[in-house]
Computed example of a mutant assay.
Amino acid sequence: MAADIRVKVCGLSTPQDVDCVARAGAAYAGFVFFEKSPRNVSYETAATLAAAAPVGLCKVALTVNAGDAELDALTEAVPLDMLQLHGKETPQRVAEVKARYGLPVMKAIGVADAADLAQIDIYSDVADQLLIDAKPPKGADLPGGNGLAFDWRLLAGRKYWRKPWMLAGGLTPDNVAEAIRMTGARQVDVSSGVESAPGVKDADLIRAFVEHTTG
């Protein structure tokens, strides 16, 4: 497996998390701003974490159907490199966010079957990157971070979309190598798969996850 797989670890909440992610060699550090999530952090906490991130570690804010007032407050309080829209934002809304804040925008797309893949081409017109995640179960409180995978065979041979994309959903140190092999992903995202409890990151699992993307 190639050694240039870029890893995003999402749902960081402590300075130790950020330090571990950076030392492990991840490319992205994700902070969650969604009150229902066990990984939710305040703007004040996120500002501290972002300030501690070394140069080169991309700081990503995950939001869910956030309005302008919320995004205004977030971007004013926290030094960020990218916004991740993980709700039901329309292509028009993605374009509006990108224009308003001048930051790269990653749009999450939930996949359960082949019909969902059409959204990837639609959002490729407006987003800078795409995060291909497992569609949450009906009635789920969280749009992501549920520890669920989708059928990776749906992405086999489809790695040449027009925009960079990232594979998410149910990834762990034990299955990430196989997921990369099956999908051709060059970027992967993990959250619950490197936790010892909901919202509690495990340094050993983070290191193992990154190591298994390059083995």
Rank of each mutant, 00 (worst) to 15 (best):
A99N: 12
R100N: 09
Y101S: 02
Y101N: 04
G102N: 10
G102D: 11
L103I: 01
P104S: 13
P104A: 07
V105M: 11
V105K: 14
M106I: 03
M106K: 12
M106C: 15
K107R: 13
A108Q: 07
I109F: 03
G110H: 09
G110T: 05
G110L: 02
A112C: 12
A112I: 00
A115R: 15
D116A: 04
D116Q: 10
D116F: 05
L117S: 07
L117Q: 13
L117I: 02
A118L: 13
A118W: 07
I120Y: 09
D121K: 06
D121G: 06
D121A: 14
I122H: 14
I122C: 10
Y123C: 02
S124V: 00
D125T: 02
D125N: 10
D125C: 04
V126E: 11
A127F: 07
L130N: 11
L131M: 12
L131T: 06
L131D: 14
L131Y: 14
I132Q: 09
I132H: 07
I132E: 07
D133L: 03
D133Q: 10
D133A: 03
P137G: 06
P137C: 01
K138I: 03
K138W: 04
K138V: 09
A140M: 08
D141T: 00
D141S: 13
L142N: 13
L142Y: 13
P143H: 06
P143Y: 03
P143G: 08
G144F: 15
G144S: 15
G145K: 06
N146M: 07
N146V: 00
N146D: 08
G147E: 12
G147N: 09
L148Q: 14
F150N: 10
D151K: 07
L154C: 08
A156Y: 10
A156D: 12
R158V: 00
R158Q: 14
R158P: 06
K159G: 13
K159P: 03
Y160R: 15
Y160K: 15
W161I: 01
R162N: 12
K163D: 08
K163S: 06
P164M: 03
P164V: 03
M166P: 04
L167P: 02
A168I: 00
A168T: 01
G169R: 07
G170H: 09
G170M: 08
T172K: 15
P173D: 09
P173V: 00
P173I: 01
N175Y: 10
V176F: 05
A177S: 13
A179G: 08
I180Y: 10
R181W: 09
R181A: 15
R181F: 07
M182T: 10
M182K: 15
T183P: 05
T183Y: 14
G184K: 12
G184Y: 13
